[in-house]
Design a protein around this nucleic acid. Structure first.
Ligand SMILES: [Zn+2]
Ligand SMILES: [Zn+2]
Ligand SMILES: [Zn+2]
Ligand SMILES: [Zn+2]
Lengths: 134, 134
DNA sequence: CCGAAAATGAAAATGATTGTCAAAAAGTGT
DNA sequence: ACACTTTTTGACAATCATTTTCATTTTCGG
């Protein structure tokens, strides 16, 4: 339980959406920390290995992380505009994935599911042309 | 409809699973083509833009492509061992994603869904310790 | 306080992807 | 076939996130 790791975890907690290692590094430096980029990467790997944070890939392949409220299996509804993410569950999807795998003779079935959209705030901001960004 | 683009498309057609740009480049060179890596990337972007191939990211962020039988919306069941992919549909998932988005006030909802598993062949191969790889 | 083990970070290395730009190929009207 | 324009191509350099390396600093048990 190193201090650095905690710092990264907190930086993540303060954000409502997914952040990249580079983002978090910038955040931490901005608030005065002397943390190194390498350490941020290491902390994130670590937090991910221990299941404390979720990770997904942006369209351009960058890894982004999030500290979720629950550690139980769930998925995300992510705003394309501000990045805000909501944790969601989908029993129907879980069953479907299992079933599809079984139907084709696949075992050890897992899945990745992400839902993207424009949140109400971003839609409003866009509509009034303010171009607001959080 | 350049020759190179066709070459890439065919290389992709010959494969049952997802392939990376580098994989395809290697394949094409191996069979004697003088194509350049840059062109392979360009062809893939192109094919993807026109909706002729699907793309997804591996865990380590590499983009992999596949020429699917259908151009209509679908998802994939991918073998973790040999990479073989099966095109699958999930009306339940489509509805769920829309619904979840709406429930949270999100608009322009899209989603990514991938199912992973070990196919029957790979499971058998593994069981008999042959370590077979296609 | 002392030495071993873990954590840290600066700098170099890696590796996929993209940008640049001049040469090669394809098209067009003559 | 010819002169000329437009498109495609590919070698090479440039980017950029992520990983490695390695020497230094911290942490901790005794
Ligand atoms: Zn938003
Ligand atoms: Zn799930
Ligand atoms: Zn398989
Ligand atoms: Zn779908």
């Amino acid at each position: 339980m190193s201090t650095r790791r905690e710092a990264v975890k907190q930086a993540l907690n303060h954000s409502t959406g997914f952040r990249s290692a580079q983002d978090l590094y910038a955040d931490l430096r901005a608030e005065g920390s002397k943390i190194g980029l390498t350490t941020v990467y290491r902390a994130l790997q670590n937090l991910h290995d221990s299941g404390e944070v979720d990770v997904l890939r942006t369209d351009d392949g960058e890894a982004v992380y999030r500290a979720c409220a629950t550690e139980s299996h769930h998925h995300h509804l992510v705003c394309r505009g501000c990045g805000k993410a909501v944790e969601v569950e989908g029993p129907a999807v879980e069953k479907w994935a299992e079933s599809i795998g079984a139907q084709h003779g696949f075992t050890e079935v897992t899945h990745t599911v992400e839902v993207f959209g424009t949140c109400a705030e971003c839609a409003a901001a866009c509509r009034e042309g303010s171009g607001k960004r959080t």
